[in-house]
Design a protein around this nucleic acid. Structure first.
Lengths: 330, 330
DNA sequence: GTGAAAGCGCTAACAG
DNA sequence: CTGTTAGCGCTTTCAC
């Protein structure tokens, strides 16, 4: 126990400390002989470089902060796959934090990342206030996934919510549905845009929008469905804010003896593995999560490495995935 | 942009740098007047302390590394909730890494944590070799969740696999099942113990064990079920390594026109939200994930703060949760 | 190629 | 209560 230092390695290898540093940083100007000496000594001592000391001295950390809003939502695991691919490609180290869907814990997570002097950060569906995000962006470049936030030092990666909502409404309208309820995502990132997109699409089809309060959780889906069940007249289709909400609603409806899609159609958003399960077979909207994650890292890289200073918004085009839960109007 | 330092804050507040440090570390020996002065100056400058410098100077980081094996498995999100509760309680900062189920990336994650001088680490269902874990444990205390690894500096938190498997087999046997297949978790943490537990329980009931290769993923469940469907004679019950596997198997069976539990019973493990979905309503085994996470942090705390040096194994008693997918033998 | 020297921003004794 | 003084372990000039 007790970590050994470069000094120890240098002494053991019989060279100077500076040389050890050069070897460990892959400098080309070191003789093979001494390189071996140093490497062997380091291995024998079980030496690990001290990240804090490195970062203090070199003024950069090579790490980028990643804030995931909710570990329980499979959507974020998918996004993270893309981010991990991106950080690996560019040689960054991701500093992962989870926000548990509470703005306060998200703020804390951001403070921590900042204290660790991340080179930039990726906020995935943050619930944080725009002001908080703007403040952070004055310190390091920020990429926001899944929500529109404007700022000179803020890039964003979004799916075209308007288009996504239109796909859903058009699909349901074509199946003959006239009463299509939207369970919205509450304060969740992008919830508002999705909802607006829904209203817009409904108007386009001459239908009357009907919105139910919600959140991006399964529980919210359950509760919204219960409220719906208490109405004298059920809608013929439900467009849920995401797959989790849809799953909760689906459960509740079937529990109440309704058959989906015979009595009622249900559509989700995200195309997570939940929706893909044959057992659920949820009609939903795919927004190429992997690409979103990878793109976010690329955008950060352009800021940090290439010195880009103008804001960029990367749009991903969502696609409808038709499965079991949507059918003709009963 | 560009971070300000304590020096800047001190100058602005008209005090010494040491005083600033005291204020920022909540020292009681500072007059309210000067405290305000410092705090105001810090806020105005947007000052953030530099974690690297702090850690270098104080010789401790207050952070503990957490390695989650697979972000896609909801089980890990549950465990992490417990860990987060624990770290908050003890004032640690969790350093999260995800291993993506590959030993190589897990090893990399551990190296990173070590370079960051975490005070200790929690490995959740690691796939890493015992040797690698032992090596890490020579440097910092390690707590392993979900797998038995012995070592002086290694504590573990496990559920009693033998008991869990017995609960499942007993439940199915009582329902009249005689042919109970186990789809095991491959190289996954705890897979072997669960499998052994199954064999042991089967023997206890005078039944012949029948094991299918698998992994802790949904895909593995799908593939195992397909192999089963190709047999001339189906078993009457399947005990899957975890909920994900069970979900995959469930899907595949129902896709093939089988009805669960009328034609076949399926049981999972972990009691994740997947199993709780009414729509799936999977009979499974609960292993109080939240408690496991919290306990892991407690164990680390005892090592770091109280100086405990003997290994401890904390057992959690699993409980059967009966739902829709298990029924009487057809 | 190699070694010496100067910090990076902070904490932690110490004296005052 | 406050200011001074050493470093923490490393990278990075700069001479040799």
């Amino acid at each position: 126990m007790g970590h050994s230092t470069m000094e120890d390695v240098a002494r053991k290898a019989g060279v100077s400390r500076a040389l050890v540093s050069l070897v460990l940083n892959d400098s080309p100007n070191v003789s093979d002989h001494r390189r071996r000496l140093v490497l062997d000594a380091a291995a024998e001592l079980g030496y690990r470089r001290n990240a804090a000391a490195r970062h203090l001295a070199s003024r950069r950390t090579g790490s980028i902060g990643v804030l995931l809003n909710d570990l329980h939502n499979p959507f974020f695991a998918d996004i993270y796959d893309g981010i991990a691919a991106g950080t690996e490609k560019h040689g960054y180290r991701p500093l992962l934090t989870a926000g548990a869907r509470r703005p306060a814990s998200e703020q804390h997570a951001i403070d921590v990342m900042l204290e660790h002097r991340v080179d930039g950060m990726i906020l995935v569906s943050p619930r944080l206030s725009t002001a908080s995000i703007a403040t952070a962006s004055e310190i390091v470049p920020v990429v926001v996934i899944g929500r529109v936030v404007r700022g000179d030092n803020i890039d964003s990666v979004e799916n075209d919510e308007r288009h996504g909502a239109l796909l859903v409404v058009a699909h349901l309208a074509e199946l003959g549905h006239r009463t299509i309820v939207h369970i919205h995502g509450g304060n969740g990132a992008g919830a508002r845009a999705r909802w607006r997109g829904y209203e817009h699409a409904m108007a386009q089809f001459g239908l009357k929008p009907d919105v139910l309060a919600g959140d991006f959780t399964e529980l919210a889906g359950v509760e919204a469905a219960r409220r719906l069940l208490r109405r004298k007249k059920l809608p013929s289709a439900v467009f849920a804010a995401n797959d989790l909400v849809a799953a909760g609603a689906l459960d509740t409806f079937e529990d109440a003896g309704l058959r989906v899609p015979d009595d009622l159609s249900v559509v989700g958003y995200d195309n997570t593995f939940l929706a893909r399960m044959h057992h659920v077979a949820l009609t939903t909207v795919d927004q190429s999560t992997e690409e979103m994650g990878r793109t976010a890292v690329d955008l950060l890289h352009q800021r940090v490495e290439d010195g880009r200073v103008t804001a960029v918004t990367h749009f991903v085009t969502p696609e409808l995935v038709t499965r079991r839960t949507s059918g003709s109007r009963p």
